[in-house]
Every structure is written in structure tokens, then in C-alpha cells.
């Protein structure tokens, strides 16, 4: 059995194996220390309320502990945890009627060569405007964009997190980028 110092140096995936085998809750504290800030920040960016984010963080970690044995070790632990966090926040918002109905808009067909342009426009947005854009588009589009540009998740990890194939991930990403850029233009014009 690993001692505490070795456990602190163990990878997330090794720790999960140890916790599932021993059911020792204090080992789970190591995983909590590694990811609590990130999870808390994700909750804040969805619910915008510190108390609600605190409660959500508590519930997400409890759910994580209860589901550790279901972690398949195919994806990284962080990918699995972030995916659980996003889905938990979206479910919470849906149950509490916090999801605004997305305006129906006919998305123009996005050609392949538009993708780089969309990304450039996204990266040039001012931070406070981007926050407003992300709060306007659907939560699922917001989740996809945060996975890609805030968590730096590669496509392969997004495939695990979203449980879909490569082309579906790329399409969702492209549509989310287009929606964000269109929303920005609607809100602020072509500035």
C-alpha cells in the first residue's frame, strides 16, 4: 500500500484505483485538493452565484465519489470529472428554469475554410463581451467552447467527454463557434 507522500505523487488514475479498492475517504481528499478550484470556477461560470456554486461543487464531488467505480480509465480522470461537472451544472440549470430559450436562428452553412476565420474572431473578442456572448448562446454550445478554449481539451478527449465520434465533435465545435460569433455580431455589430 502506498504511503501518504507517494499517494500525493500518484497520478489521478492511480489514486482512483486505490480509493475504489480501499473505500478510504481521506484519499479522496487528495483528488479534491487537485480539482476543487477548477470545478468551483466552472460552477461559477454557469450559475453566477457563489453560494449556489459552493453547493454544486459539494454535490459534484459527492457524485464523483459515488461514481468512481464507474470510471473506465479510457479517458483521463480530469476529462471525466469536467464532463460530469458540465453536465451536472446544465441539469441543475434546467431543473431550476435557469436556461434561457435560445433564439431560433437559421445558421448559414459553414464552409470548412470559415472555421479558421471563426476561431480568429472568437479569439479577438473582448473578455467582458465574450462573457455576455457565452451567457446568451445555449449552455451546450458554451460547454463545448469552454472544453476547447478554457480546458484545452484535445478532440480525442472531447470525444470521450461528449460521447460522440470525431466528426460529431468537430461539427458541434464549429456550430458553437458560429453561434458565438453570430451572437457577438448581433449584440455589438461588426466592431
Amino acid at each position: 500500500m502506498l504511503n501518504l507522500k507517494n499517494k500525493r505523487n500518484a497520478s489521478d488514475e492511480e489514486l482512483v484505483k486505490i480509493i475504489v479498492k480501499s473505500n478510504r475517504h481521506d484519499d479522496f481528499g487528495i483528488l479534491y485538493d487537485r480539482y476543487s478550484e477548477k470545478v468551483y470556477h466552472k460552477c461559477i461560470s454557469f450559475v453566477k452565484d457563489l453560494d449556489e456554486a459552493k453547493d454544486l461543487t459539494h454535490d459534484i464531488f459527492l457524485k464523483t465519489f459515488l461514481n468512481l467505480s464507474k470510471f473506465s480509465h479510457k479517458a483521463k480522470f480530469s476529462t471525466w470529472l469536467y464532463s460530469l461537472t458540465y453536465n451536472f451544472c446544465i441539469d441543475y440549470m434546467r431543473k431550476n428554469n435557469k436556461i434561457k430559450k435560445e433564439p431560433e436562428e437559421a445558421l448559414r452553412h459553414i464552409a470548412d475554410d470559415d472555421d479558421a476565420l471563426l476561431e480568429r474572431e472568437l479569439m479577438q473578442m473582448k473578455a467582458e463581451r465574450l462573457t455576455k456572448v457565452l451567457d446568451t448562446i445555449s449552455v451546450k454550445d458554451k460547454m463545448v467552447l469552454l472544453m476547447k478554449y478554457q480546458d484545452d481539451m484535445p478532440i480525442t478527449e472531447m470525444m470521450d467527454a461528449l460521447e460522440c465520434n470525431e466528426s460529431a465533435v468537430k461539427m458541434r465545435l464549429k456550430r458553437a463557434k458560429a453561434k458565438a460569433v453570430n451572437t457577438y455580431k448581433t449584440m455589438y455589430g461588426d466592431e
Binding site: D33, S36, I44, S45, K54, L122, A127, E128
Partner: peptide, 18 residues
């Protein structure tokens, strides 16, 4: 700079949560 990194909240999680 990537604006997604700038908008990431910076609040510290209260110790009571742990």
C-alpha cells in the same frame, strides 16, 4: 491573449466546502 482564459473566475473556494 485567449479571452477564454481571461474570463475564467478567480474566486478561491471556501475551506468549509472541503
Amino acid at each position: 491573449e485567449n479571452p477564454f482564459k481571461i474570463i475564467e473566475p478567480r474566486e478561491e473556494i471556501p475551506a468549509t466546502v472541503k
